[in-house]
C-alpha cells in the first residue's frame, strides 16, 4: 500500500513548476472550472500520466493546432471512446512492460498511469457503452468525468448530465416547456453498479479532498472513476469570478455531495460529511441556483414549483446517499 498522499500547498508549486503536465496558453474560457480540475489532477500525480481525452471542451481548448498545452502524453481519438482508447493503452502498456521491450531504451518509458478524460456528453451519453465495457473488463485506469452539465463545446445543448430545469439551447425556456423537464442521470450509481474498486466525486473548491481522491484513483488497481464538478461560466451564464464559489455552493447545498465509494462501500468526505453530521449546515439550493442565468426562470414567482421540485430532487438524492454512507 502506498504511503498516504497529503497535498501540501507549500510544496505543490515546486512540483508543478518542475513538471506542469499542462501549460498556460490553452484556450479554455475565462473562469473555466474544468481547466482547474485538470491542474488539480496534475498536482495529484504519482507518476507520469498518459491521457485519453474524449472529444469535448478540454480536448479542443488544449490542442488547437499547431499548439498543445499538454506536457504529458495525450491522445484524442473520438467522442464516444475515451474508455476504449484508454483500454487499448492499458493493454499495450501491460504487454510492453511484461516483455521488457523498451527496458534498454533510454528514450522510452512505459511506466505511467492511464487516465481517460471525458465531459458529460462523452460519459453520460455517447461514451457510456465504452465506459461500461472498460469497467467490466477491469482495465487498470482512472476515468475522469468533468461534468459541466451540457454540450458546452458545441454551444450549450442539453445532455444526460444537465440538471432539472436548466436552460440550454435545446431546452430553451419556452412558453410551454421551461428548461429541461427531466433530471440528471445518476452516473456514479451506474458506474458503481459495475462494482469497481474506487469511485468518487470531487469539487475543485475542496482541493485537498480532490487531490487525495485523484491520487487514490490513480493508485487503484483496476478501474477507478471520478466525477468532477466543472463550472462553466459560458454555458451556465455565471460570472467568471464565481467558479469556485459555485463549486463550493454545489457541495454546501448538497446538490453535489462529496463522497467516495470504495469496494462498493459509500463514505461521505470533507464538507459533505460535516453536513451529514450537522444537518443545519445544509444550505437551501436556491443559494446555488440564484447565481446562474440558466436557472433564472426558476426564481420567478410563476415558476416557484420548479424551484421547489429542484429542492426536492436535491433532498431525495442526499437522503439516498446518507442512507448508503457507512460513516454517518
Amino acid at each position: 500500500m502506498a504511503k498516504e498522499f497529503v497535498p501540501n500547498i507549500r510544496q505543490l508549486p515546486k512540483f508543478m513548476k518542475e513538471d506542469p503536465g499542462i501549460l498556460p496558453g490553452h484556450r479554455a474560457c475565462a473562469g473555466c472550472g474544468c481547466a482547474i480540475i485538470l491542474r488539480q489532477l496534475m498536482m495529484a500525480r504519482r507518476k507520469p500520466l498518459v491521457i485519453a481525452n474524449a472529444t469535448g471542451c478540454m480536448e479542443v481548448v488544449t490542442t488547437i493546432f499547431p499548439y498543445t498545452a499538454w506536457k504529458t502524453p495525450w491522445i484524442h481519438v473520438a467522442f464516444e471512446n475515451a474508455a476504449a482508447v484508454a483500454a487499448g493503452i492499458d493493454a499495450g502498456r501491460n504487454k510492453l512492460q511484461r516483455s521488457g521491450r523498451f527496458s534498454d531504451d533510454p528514450d522510452v518509458s512505459v511506466d505511467y498511469d492511464v487516465v481517460a478524460l471525458a465531459g458529460d456528453g462523452g460519459t453520460y451519453d455517447i461514451g457510456l457503452q465504452a465506459l461500461s465495457g472498460a469497467l467490466e473488463r477491469w482495465h487498470n485506469f482512472l476515468y475522469i468525468l468533468y461534468d459541466n452539465e451540457a454540450y458546452m463545446n458545441t454551444g450549450i445543448q442539453r445532455s444526460g448530465g444537465t440538471p432539472f430545469g436548466a436552460w440550454t439551447t435545446t431546452t430553451p425556456v419556452g412558453s410551454k416547456i421551461k428548461g429541461k423537464p427531466l433530471t440528471k442521470k445518476p452516473i456514479v450509481d451506474i458506474v458503481v453498479a459495475h462494482r469497481i474498486p474506487y469511485a468518487a466525486t470531487v469539487s475543485p473548491a475542496y482541493w485537498v479532498d480532490a487531490l487525495k481522491k485523484f491520487r487514490k484513483g490513480l493508485e487503484t488497481e483496476g478501474p477507478a472513476f471520478i466525477h468532477a464538478f466543472g463550472v462553466c461560466p459560458r454555458g451556465w451564464r455565471t460570472d467568471t469570478k464565481d467558479t469556485i464559489k459555485l463549486s463550493r455552493l454545489a457541495v454546501e447545498t448538497c446538490f453535489f455531495p462529496l463522497y467516495e465509494v470504495v469496494n462498493s462501500e459509500w463514505y461521505l468526505t470533507g464538507p459533505s460529511l460535516t453536513i451529514a453530521k450537522n444537518p443545519e449546515r445544509k444550505k437551501p439550493v436556491e443559494e446555488y441556483l440564484k447565481l446562474q442565468g440558466r436557472f433564472r426562470h426558476m426564481l420567478l414567482p410563476e415558476n416557484k414549483w420548479m424551484l421547489e421540485k429542484f429542492q426536492e430532487l436535491v433532498d431525495e438524492n442526499w437522503e439516498i446517499i446518507l442512507k448508503r454512507a457507512k460513516n454517518v
Binding site: 515546486k14 508543478m16 499542462i22 479554455a28 475565462a30 491542474r39 482541493w207
Partner: peptide, 26 residues
Amino acid sequence: MFCPDSAIEWDGESVPKPNYKYCKGC
C-alpha cells in the same frame, strides 16, 4: 490553486505574481 490558466506564478512561499501573458482576467 484556483487559477484555471496557470497564470499565477508562485514558489509556495513568497507573494504570488500574476503572469499577464496568460491571465484571462476571470
